[in-house]
Each structure stands twice: as structure tokens, then as C-alpha cells.
Design a protein around this nucleic acid. Structure first.
Length: 816
RNA sequence: GCCGAGGUGGCGGAAUGGUAGACGCGGCGGACUUAAAAUCCGCUUUCCGCGAGGAAGUGUGGGUUCGAGUCCCUCCCUCGGCACCA
């Protein structure tokens, strides 16, 4: 009779969490003799509540970190909060709470929630990005980048809401191009902004050869950086009142140069006013005005019909001295290439549509195969044979690419060139709740960086939060007005703050020594832990945080702050948890709160269930019933371990089998852990539990063999269900703590099967199965297969044409 | 449009080119119970068959192979990313 207490997750989870903290079980030291392992999980934004989606990121990463810890690594698995950002400010405006208070209250709640997960977080290393001790160093890094020439100020187009009288971040503009807050159409405006020169690192950022990252993330970054090979070509310019004698374009198709029939500039191109003929002035200005009123989203919509106007001026195509009309059109972007294109309507679909609309000539210079010389229905963008291209006629177009580049270079009309799609990183935010950009503007001295000794530039406590959307810093005189650090004349502070991605570009360095106060980190401790061995988080950051952090690392490497090329050696992206068919989000109202399930079934059940829904990288669906099954299994483990075991009819064979299955399970669980297949890892443990249940019923092994199997089960379960495993470990008489035990290893010999089931197929169809010793020879196996009563009818008394034998698997008899 | 990941029972999902559907949920039947819950045991891809057994079956259509969910080609659908990038 089992008289042990029932499994009570709430009680044991609270008990062990308190004890682990009291014993400082998970505090991490640098002087530990074990090899270091830095297991980083993306820190959460301080939105207020953790939902199951957060747990899906946190729980399996903790399992992995615990697994590494048991394997003998000194594991740093820290946690902190990404605490600056817009929502805090919006809360301040709508509810009258100061962003600091709002954020800190949220952190308190999230910290409480995070502690219920039962993770090995070392809370003594907690990092919060919005406290002065942290953002002082974010500002310090800005100064270092500025000194290195990697931060600069320039005019840039931004999203402007006329009603709110402010700039909006891209994230604040709805997909319809409206202001998120007031639904006013957002327009473009040109403002002075701070940028980081990420483009200087475009080439190095394309190189992922030093890191072990998922292929899809590497591809996403490659596409985002967008390297194009082509040529910079020069077109002649003869226009009164203009000094320039040429206009340059970037093209990926220099082979189509003879097919240029018009020339298109971005409406914002600085030379447009000068190249506009007097009689075209009104039309051109009207068009420019229309373009500027469009949002980025409207302008770049693919469905939109092409529009443009003729400037009344011409360029000369140097290869054939043809006069080519210059147009402006909003499909040409000012920020890519040279802001101007040579239009080849026969071989570019956009130019084709434009030419059709405005009746411009379409000249084929690359003949498609079997071309009949007639008009094209669409641009031919593939390779072909050169035609109408002077001395290049008859050449395959891919060869002509090089030939024409050589020709242009020899004439000094252009040269081969590479262009990137990547733009510099705009870090200015017209917001209060961010790290102030540490810069002062002086009438006399211009832009003056705040001296290092004056850091941090503190956010003023007395800023006002008005519902107008204006930056509270701009109207906070005590903040704005200061003295020039150089000449002491009255001067003004920069009122923009930094993009929060700046804060998250170095937080993992801070974890290594969060108490450092004369440098962003303690150099020795940072060197000890970095780079991160395993980084886990969502794939949605592929082209933001993950790219910024790589850039930032390379920038500070070149400044001499760190000495490694990449911050994250290995990356793993978990998928997304969906609920009721959609991604969980507050706005959709389909958020599942973990607290309820922890209260009812315990954190161990929630952790294990999240791992069980599917492969971690694929994401999965939260199912309210599914977790009940996980809870049932943990209960079965509890009952199995706490029940008295009585050996009845023990046999050597039964013990051998138990040992075999134990070692097979160790192998499966270990290998699944290593490849992040937590779902099948738990399935293996469930099978093991089911098997142990049978052994217990039958009492076929000795008590000591039983105890051995049970303790292995608990060790394998420890990372996934740390509280349950600890409780059962201690109650079965083992020394505290299970989390300081060695991960079990398997013995291949003991795991080996003695008998296998051979499948017998006839013409590939399963017809019978036989159980044979693994030592069976090929001849014996074939003979056995042919002699099976169930097989004989399929043979028709004929000799089989062929017999395929796969040892340990099957025999396939091929009959004619 | 381009790039990437997917498409397997009623559901979530397992399957180094070799027994498709592990494990779990749900469902059905049974045990225990006055009864219910909980727990335990059995069954559960579909169709035909009393049964033994047979047939079909991994989005579609082809191909390679003794053998294909898995490899190759065509197309369709879902999800994620990018998108007038010259």
C-alpha cells in the first residue's frame, strides 16, 4: 500500500525555490574549475506580465542550461530586463504614472513571475537597462562610437504625424500608413538625426563563417544586407546653369546599356531642381510635393501604378551618344545606389510598365531564345543573346556583362561596383524613455560630446508628459539648458534619446560583472565569459537586435573594448507559441497567463508541457487539455517513486532488460537534449516510466536494481522538472542537491539489444515478422524468411529473383 | 514577386531511404466506487471481413529505388521574412 503523501507541486516548488536561494545553489563564480558555458536567453521587455510565450522562451533554455550544468560546465544563465521604450511613455501619458515607476512596477511583477519558473538564474547578476548605472555605459559606448567616426548626424526622412506634431518610429505607423495613436495619415519629413555607420561593416556582417547559426537567420541577414554586384556608369550631362558634366547610376545590368531609352531620378535627388526646364517646373514641383506627402508604405507598395514626370532635360548615353530624356518617378528611391537609374524597359519590369504608361520607346538589346523580333509583352529579365548593341552583338549577355564593364572602364565611363541594401542605423528617438544621447550643441563649438566624467546624462525627474506626443525632454528647461563643456558658454543638450536596440546591443557584456562602476564591465570577468556559447530567442530579431549586436561588437572590437569578432557563437531560435490559431498577444486578447497553471498544476508541469508540444524551433500550440496529460505523467512519476517496491520473482534476464532499457533511455534523452528535441526527450522518459510501471507491478528485479533505475530516471528528469526531481531525489535518500549531480552516461554495450524483429517483405510489402538473435547470419536470416508459412504463398514455388537483407532491419524478397 | 520553413490519424506530433502514426490529448470499452471525480487496464488511420486476414494511406501529379513520409522534378496550400533595391 502506498501511504506516501500525494504530489503537491505548489508546496514542493515553493520549498525548493526558497532553499535553492538560501543555499545560493545557482550563484555563478569565475574561479570555478569547470569549463565555462555562457547560456544566454533574450531578456524580456518590461511590458508588465509574462505570458506563456515568454515561458516558451525561458523554460526550455533553462532546461538546456541545467543540462549543461549537470554535464559539468560552469554555466552562466543570467536574466535581466529590457526596460526603456515607448510603452512606458504611453502609459505615463494615458495613466499619469511616471515611466520609471511603471517600468519598475512591471519588473517587480515579472521578477516574481520569473522566479516561479524554477530556473537557475543567478539573480545577483540581474541587469536593468533603464537605471543610470546601466545607461551611463550605453552613453559611454555612444561616445566611443562617436570618437571612432561611427556615429554621425545627418538629415533623414522620418515619419511625421501632423496632428501629434511629432516624429513616429516605424513601429508606430500602422500598415495603412496611419498614426497608431490618432489615425492621422503619416507623412515624410526631413529631420536631423543620429546614425551609426553599420554600412561600414556590411561586408563583414555578411560573413557568418565564424558562427554556428541557423541557416534561415543567416539568409535573412544576407538578404537584408542585400549585396548587389554591378557597375557605376556615367551619363553625359549638358545643361545650362549646371556645373556637373555627368550623372552616375548604379546598375546590376551593364549588359543592357544599349537599351536605355530614358533616365529616372528620385524626386528628392538634389539636382532635380537644376535639371528642370522652366516650362516643366510647375508639373515637376507638383509631383515632388505629392511624393513627399506619401508614406514609405504607400510609396513602396508594389501594386501602385508607376507615375512620374518629364523634367524637360536630357542625359547622353555615352556608348551610342543617344539623347535620353530625364524623368523623375517615385519608384526610384533616393537612398539606394545613386538615387538615379538608367531605364531599360525591355529588360526591367518596372521600367517596362513606366514606358508603356508614358509611351516611351522600348528597345530590345538582349534577345530571348526564339525571339521573333516583335514587341515584348513583358520585360525579358533573363540572359539571352546581345542585339542592337554595336560591337557586343551576338555575345551571350552574361559574357557581355564583363565585356561591357571592361569597355566602360577602359573609356573611363564607369567601373564595376558593389552596392548594399543595408542603410545606416538611425538611433535617434524623439522620446523621453531612453538613454539620452550625450551630446551638447554650442553656438560657438558646434556638436560637443559630453565628457566621460560627466556621465551619465540623467533623465530629468520633472519632465512633463503631455498627450501631444512631443518629446518631454524638449520642453524640460532644466535638462536642455547647460554649459558648453569646451567654452562654458550657454548651450543646449541633445533632446533625442537612443533607440533601445542600443541598450540591448551590450547587455550580455554587463551580465558578466553587473557591479562594475569604472568601466562597462570588469575586463577579466568579461573575457572569462564571452563570447556567449549559446544564445536562444525569437527569430523575429534576425534583422534587428541580432544584426545590431553583431555590428556593435565589431565596432567596439575595432575600438579595442573587446577582442572577439562575434558576440554569439551559437544561436538557436525557438518558434512561436500559438493559441486559438493565433500568435499570443495582448492586443489579440488570446494571452495565456502561466500563473493560473502554476497555481493549479505547478511550474514543472508548465515547463514540461511547453517542451512537449513539438520541436522547440517549430513552435507549437498551447492546449488547455494537453497540459493535463503532462501533469498526469508527473503524478505517475511521483507515485512510481514513492510507492514501496517489492521484489517478487526476480530473474537475471529481467534485470538485464531493465539495465538495457535504462541505458537506451539515457542515450535517447542525452542526444535529444543536445539537439534541442525536448518533445521526444520527454517521450523517451514517458516510455521509460511506463516500462518501470510494469516492472514495479511484476516485481521482477531486485530492490537495488530498482533503486538504480529510479535514480537514473530522476537525474534525467532533473533539468525538465527540477522541483519534482529534487523532492524525490531527497526523499529516496539521496544527498541534496540533485542539481549538483553528474549527468548519467550510457554504456553502448549495456544498451545493445540481444534480439531484433526482422521484417519480412515480399516485393516491398510487409508480410511477416520474426524475432531473431542479433547474431543471426545473412544466410540464416534468408533461409528463415523463405521458410515462413506466411511467406510461402507469395513465392508461387518460384525462385526469388533477389533477396535484400538489411541486418537488424528486414529481408525483402523480390519475386518476378 | 523573391527567400525560408512546413503540409502525416479526430487533435499536438514520432519516424539514420527499411514495420508509417512513437509519446501525449481526445474518444470508446472495462476495473475500482452506492455514485461521481481521480486512478488503473484494454482498444482507437480508413475501408472490406464474424474472423484469420486483405486493401488503401503521409497536400497534387510524375520520377529514381528491391523498398520513398524521407531523395529528384511539376503544381497546390499554410506560416514566417523581405519586397518598386535599379
Amino acid at each position: 500500500m502506498n501511504t506516501s503523501p500525494k504530489y503537491n507541486p505548489q508546496e514542493i516548488e515553493k520549498k525548493w525555490q526558497e532553499k535553492w536561494v538560501a543555499d545560493r545553489l545557482y550563484e555563478v563564480k569565475e574561479n570555478d574549475p569547470h569549463p565555462k558555458f555562457y547560456a544566454l536567453t533574450m531578456f524580456p521587455y518590461t511590458s508588465g506580465d509574462l505570458h506563456i510565450g515568454h515561458w516558451y522562451a525561458m523554460a526550455p533554455s533553462d532546461v538546456q542550461a541545467r543540462f549543461k550544468r549537470m554535464q559539468g560546465y560552469n554555466v552562466l544563465h543570467p536574466i535581466g530586463f529590457d526596460a526603456f521604450g515607448l510603452p512606458a511613455e504611453n502609459a505615463a501619458i494615458s495613466r499619469g504614472i511616471h515611466p520609471y515607476t511603471w517600468t519598475m512596477n512591471n519588473i517587480e511583477n515579472m521578477r516574481r513571475q520569473l522566479k516561479t519558473i524554477g530556473a537557475i538564474y543567478d539573480w545577483s547578476r540581474e541587469v536593468i537597462t533603464c537605471v543610470p548605472e546601466y545607461y551611463k555605459w550605453t552613453q559611454w559606448f555612444f561616445l566611443k562610437l562617436y570618437e571612432a567616426g561611427l556615429a554621425y548626424r545627418a538629415e533623414a526622412p522620418v515619419n511625421w504625424c501632423g496632428k501629434c506634431q511629432t516624429v513616429l518610429a516605424n513601429e508606430q505607423v500602422t500598415s495603412e500608413g496611419l498614426c497608431e495613436r490618432c489615425n492621422t495619415p503619416v507623412v515624410r519629413k526631413y529631420l536631423e538625426q543620429w546614425f551609426f555607420r553599420i554600412t561600414r561593416y556590411a561586408e563583414e556582417l555578411l560573413d557568418h563563417s565564424k558562427i554556428d547559426w541557423p541557416e534561415r537567420i543567416k539568409i535573412m541577414q544576407k538578404n537584408w544586407i542585400g549585396k548587389s554586384y554591378g557597375a557605376d556608369l556615367s551619363f553625359g550631362l549638358e545643361y545650362k546653369g549646371i556645373a556637373e558634366k555627368e550623372l552616375r547610376v548604379f546598375t546590376t545590368r551593364p549588359d543592357t546599356i544599349y537599351g536605355v531609352t530614358f533616365f529616372v531620378m528620385a524626386p528628392e535627388h538634389p539636382l532635380v531642381p537644376k535639371l528642370t526646364a522652366p516650362e516643366r517646373k510647375a508639373a515637376v514641383e507638383k509631383y515632388i510635393h505629392q511624393t513627399l506627402r506619401q508614406t514609405e508604405i504607400e510609396r513602396t507598395s508594389v501594386e501602385k501604378e508607376k507615375t512620374g514626370v518629364f523634367l524637360g532635360s536630357y542625359v547622353i548615353n555615352k556608348v551610342n551618344e543617344e539623347k535620353v530624356p530625364i524623368w523623375i518617378a517615385d519608384y526610384v528611391l533616393p537612398s539606394y545606389g545613386t538615387g538615379a537609374v538608367m531605364a531599360v524597359p525591355a529588360h526591367d519590369q518596372r521600367d517596362f510598365e513606366f514606358a508603356k504608361k508614358y509611351g516611351l520607346p522600348i528597345s530590345v538589346v538582349i534577345a530571348p531564345p526564339d525571339w521573333d523580333g516583335k514587341e515584348l509583352d513583358a520585360a525579358w529579365v533573363e540572359n539571352g543573346t546581345m542585339v542592337n548593341s554595336a560591337q557586343f552583338n551576338g555575345m551571350p549577355s552574361d559574357k557581355a556583362f564583363d565585356a561591357i564593364c571592361d569597355y566602360m572602364e577602359s573609356k573611363n565611363w564607369g567601373k564595376r561596383a558593389v552596392t548594399y541594401r543595408l542603410r545606416d542605423w538611425l538611433i535617434s528617438r524623439q522620446r523621453y524613455w531612453g538613454a539620452p544621447i550625450p551630446v551638447i550643441y554650442c553656438q560657438k563649438c558646434g556638436i560637443v560630446p559630453v565628457p566621460e566624467k560627466d556621465l551619465p546624462v540623467l533623465l530629468p525627474q520633472d519632465a512633463e508628459f503631455r498627450p501631444t506626443g512631443e518629446s518631454p525632454l524638449k520642453y524640460c528647461e532644466s535638462f536642455v539648458n547647460t554649459k558648453c563643456p569646451k567654452c562654458s558658454a550657454p548651450a543646449q543638450r541633445e533632446t533625442d534619446t537612443m533607440d533601445t536596440f542600443m541598450c540591448s546591443s551590450w547587455y550580455f557584456l554587463r551580465y558578466t560583472s553587473p557591479d562594475a562602476d569604472n568601466y562597462p564591465f570588469d575586463k577579466a570577468r568579461m573575457k572569462f565569459w564571452m563570447p556567449v556559447d549559446l544564445y536562444t530567442g525569437g527569430a523575429e530579431h534576425a534583422n534587428m537586435h541580432l544584426l545590431y549586436a553583431r555590428f556593435f561588437n565589431k565596432a567596439i572590437r575595432d575600438i579595442g573594448v573587446v577582442n572577439f569578432d562575434e558576440p554569439f557563437t551559437r544561436l538557436f531560435n525557438q518558434g512561436i507559441i500559438i493559441y486559438k490559431g493565433e500568435k499570443m498577444s495582448k492586443s489579440k486578447g488570446n494571452v495565456v497567463t502561466p500563473d493560473v497553471y502554476i497555481g493549479e498544476l505547478g511550474a514543472d508541469a508548465v515547463r514540461a508541457y511547453l517542451m512537449f508540444v513539438g520541436p522547440w524551433e517549430m513552435g507549437g500550440e498551447w492546449n488547455d487539455n494537453g497540459i493535463v496529460g503532462m501533469s498526469r505523467w508527473l503524478n505517475r512519476v511521483w507515485n512510481l517513486v514513492t510507492a514501496n517496491y517489492t521484489a517478487r520473482t526476480t530473474t537475471p534476464d529481467a534485470e538485464k532488460e531493465l539495465l538495457r532499457i535504462t541505458h537506451q533511455t539515457i542515450k535517447r534523452v542525452t542526444q535529444d537534449m543536445e539537439r534541442f528535441r525536448f518533445n521526444t526527450m520527454l517521450a523517451a522518459l514517458m516510455e521509460f516510466t511506463n516500462y518501470l510501471g510494469k516492472v514495479q507491478d511484476e516485481g521482477t528485479v531486485s530492490a537495488s536494481a530498482w533503486q538504480q533505475a529510479i535514480s537514473t530516471l530522476l537525474l534525467l528528469l532533473a533539468p525538465s522538472a527540477p522541483h519534482l526531481a529534487e523532492e524525490l531525489w531527497v526523499t529516496t535518500g539521496h544527498p541534496y542537491s540533485i542539481h549538483n549531480q553528474k549527468w548519467p552516461t550510457w554504456n553502448e554495450e549495456l544498451a545493445k539489444e540481444e534480439e531484433v524483429t526482422l521484417v519480412i517483405q515480399v516485393n516491398g510489402k510487409l508480410r511477416d515478422k520474426v524475432t531473431v538473435p542479433v547474431s543471426i547470419t545473412e544466410d540464416e536470416a534468408k533461409k528463415l524468411a523463405l521458410s515462413q508459412e506466411r511467406i510461402k504463398p507469395y513465392l508461387n514455388n518460384k525462385q526469388p529473383a533477389k533477396i535484400i537483407y538489411v541486418p537488424g532491419r528486414l529481408i525483402n524478397i523480390v519475386v518476378g
